[in-house]
Amino acid sequence: MVRHTSEARRSAAPLSRILAGLCLGLALTAGAHAARQPGTVDSYALVGANERGMTITGEADDWRRLKAVRKQVGDREFLWVREGGKAWVIQDGATLAKVHAAWEPVERLGKQMGAYGQEMHRHGKAMDALGREMDRTAGTMQPDERRIKDVERRMSAVGREMEQVGRGMARADADERARLQARMAELQGDMSRLGAEMGDAAQSRAQREAQQSMRQVSLRMDEASKPIDELGKRMDALGKQMERESERADKAVRAVIRDAMARGLATPAPQG
């Protein structure tokens, strides 16, 4: 299991002062999948000086152990290592410098990713504003209920008269039938005009204007989404680059740890 935990104070302090960079956490997967051969590093953590932040590659229990070590070591920067069930602390300046150097490329890419994130946030706010504008516009797209009811009433009256005229035509003589046919044609014209009026009432001028506004907003949203799509592609490519750099950094750090331990620079971690 891989765990990355940070309790770093949110301040303007350089990232390297907090954890030697948020970048250390980017190689958690690489560390988790490293071969667990005898004599190899199971997990490690770099803890910044004068900060409460810490980043771990390892198991959940390592977090509890590391907090206890932090209290014993104090405010000095150190590298914590777990190997074969034993925990060690390395405070050698040259070793810590090599760890920082190994992660510097990832930290640099992480800052670029952070800039991309801020840019994405700005675009997201713009899209959110357009979404709210569309919601407000949609709220105005309500039919004229009063007018619709009035048209329905008149259509019912015309329909009843058409029914009466139709019954009359069945028993009328030729002259009367001609008159009724003319009246039926008039009523059909009235019904056609009422149908058009009903359509106009169901889609008022305000609605048509709202629909036009929504089309305009939709076009603006399409335009606003283009830089988001492009930025997403750049972030995806950068993320893959960071993964590759993280794997290289993780391997380099593990080699640095093995060298430091071989030279006797590691001391048993204090027990909490």
Rank of each mutant, 00 (worst) to 15 (best):
S11Y: 08
E119K: 04
R17A: 14
R52K: 14
A206L: 12
G166F: 08
A8Y: 07
M242F: 04
T40N: 02
R147G: 03
R132H: 09
I228W: 13
G272M: 08
I257A: 10
K149W: 00
V106K: 02
R65D: 11
K240N: 13
D75R: 14
R234Y: 01
W103I: 00
V217P: 03
R167V: 00
R177C: 03
T40K: 11
S246L: 07
L238N: 06
V106S: 05
E59C: 02
V151F: 05
D75V: 11
L238I: 00
K71P: 03
A12V: 00
S43E: 09
G168Q: 12
P38G: 04
L22V: 14
A97I: 06
H121R: 06
R171K: 10
V217S: 13
V89D: 01
A170R: 14
K251C: 08
D200I: 01
A170H: 11
A157H: 04
R146P: 09
M134V: 04
D75E: 15
A201S: 02
D62M: 09
M235D: 01
H33T: 10
M191Q: 14
M169W: 04
R147I: 05
G131D: 05
A178W: 01
E176Y: 09
M261C: 08
V69A: 12
R132I: 08
V47A: 10
A201C: 03
D135F: 11
V217R: 15
D62S: 04
M134Q: 08
Q203T: 12
E51Y: 14
G58M: 05
R244V: 11
L24R: 07
A129C: 00
M155S: 06
R36S: 04
I18H: 14
L22C: 06
R205I: 02
T137R: 13
E145H: 06
L265Q: 15
R3A: 08
M1S: 13
S213L: 15
T29E: 10
A30M: 02
P268W: 09
E223H: 14
A101D: 11
H4L: 00
M198S: 04
R244C: 02
R76P: 03
D229C: 08
E77A: 15
A182W: 03
T57P: 01
M184Q: 13
V158D: 11
R244L: 13
R248T: 08
R147E: 08
E145W: 05
A138C: 04
R244S: 14
P227D: 06
K233A: 05
K125R: 09
M54D: 10
A115K: 01
V106A: 00
R10K: 10
